[in-house]
Design a protein around this nucleic acid. Structure first.
Lengths: 219, 219
DNA sequence: TGTACATCAGTGAACGCGCGTTCACTGATGTAC
DNA sequence: TGTACATCAGTGAACGCGCGTTCACTGATGTAC
């Protein structure tokens, strides 16, 4: 019994990488459709109800088609998460390049951070199942690294740009300040995109005020 | 086929309430053991790997024993979440009663908030699967209400106490400020308890600095 | 203090279902000549 | 421009497993007299 069991439970490690990469348009469409549909289903029912069979069905595919590209459902979620985080991160990097961090007054700082945060909100709204993806990768230990490496990448860029401008505080203090701020911004995104309401922009704005006020300390 | 299917899929709504409440010590121990074990398994593998059979097995029970108290695994998680949130909330209420919100200087404000936040961290650390419970209820649509009603309950108390002391800003602005602050505090808990590191107390402290600085605006 | 009985608590064994996944195959697309 | 062929993309049908859950039952606990 034990032998048979061990022989069957082959996948000791769950792989998160995609398998085949599509070469033709048809394949690319399928690949993308899988991610979109998975996002929709995730938003509707949460991760534990997300199944490969349901994804395939709604995408108009037979189950094996999905396995051409993804080894399992964790890999699908991981790909969704990676793409969403990349979009969010690239927006921040572009914002830095465009001088988002050059502000002379407090009000200007607030408004610049606000512009960036509004953009992050919109990216998340537009992404299929965006906020559900963010929540799912927090809740699934297997996917923590994807989230943390994205956060750390952004944190490092912000650190490099802030260190030059900061006169007070050690590097360590600055790093902590940045980490806390990024987590606040994630929380703000999850708040307004996850439970939409009439005050969304105000909520976003106040989160930015908090961050801007706080970073006055490092000037 | 369709008829048979409909007849079988009886539970149209998933109930979240507990079933029997134990009357004897033996039953109470079992009830508690289920919650503890569920928390451990949740922390180890995440919610989608959490199954009633595994919970029963690790708790030293046969599967039907669990169904005496809980109608399904969502109810178990809901009970865990409710208890953790109650502990967190009651600590905040006690802190308010003990004068946590009476501070004359900024530094005193920071230190008082810090004391409360450190307590919340410890409560979450001590609770089996604490941080995993917090993450899971975010990720499972069915359980969102439990989290939000706890948050709103705390928000309302803070609002009532802050409104008296606040001279500037409308009620609406104050409510938004409180909501954002509470979400930041949740994020801070998840950060330090979920990814423990040497800087935990500093991270906690800086989150409190952010909140204290921000609320200076309402004085 | 001891026994009978009601109720509480938990078990052994099994169920049907849908899940993740695979196999051997067919159909679609692009390319060389 | 047309055909042969290699490769890419997707299918039909099925599998074994473990999941959630239930049934009819046994054993433990407390209580009335």
């Amino acid at each position: 019994l034990s032998k048979a069991k061990r022989a069957k439970s082959a996948p000791l490690a769950i792989l998160l990488e995609t398998k085949a990469t599509p070469y033709q348009d048809r394949g690319r469409n399928t690949f993308d459709a899988i991610l979109v549909v998975a996002g929709e289903l995730l938003a509707e029912n949460g991760f534990e109800q997300l199944t490969t069979n349901k994804i395939a069905e709604r995408a108009g595919l037979s189950p094996p088609a999905l396995y051409r590209y993804f080894p399992n459902k964790y890999a699908i979620l991981n790909e969704m998460a990676g793409r969403l985080m990349d979009l969010q991160d690239e927006a921040v990097f572009a914002w830095i390049e465009a001088g988002g961090m050059h502000a002379s007054t407090l009000d200007e700082t607030i408004e610049k951070i606000f512009a960036s945060q509004m953009q992050a909100n919109q990216i998340t709204r537009d992404y299929p199942g965006g906020v559900s993806v963010m929540r799912a990768i927090r809740a699934i230990p297997l996917l923590h690294d994807t989230r943390l490496s994205s956060r750390d990448r952004v944190a490092e860029q912000l650190f490099l740009h802030l260190r030059c401008r900061s006169s007070r505080g050690s590097d360590e203090e600055l790093r902590i300040a940045i980490r806390v701020s990024i987590e606040l911004m994630y929380a703000a995104i999850e708040m307004v995109v996850g439970e939409p309401g009439p005050d969304d922009d105000k909520i976003t704005h106040e989160a930015c005020v908090m961050i801007a006020l706080y970073f006055e300390r490092f000037r």
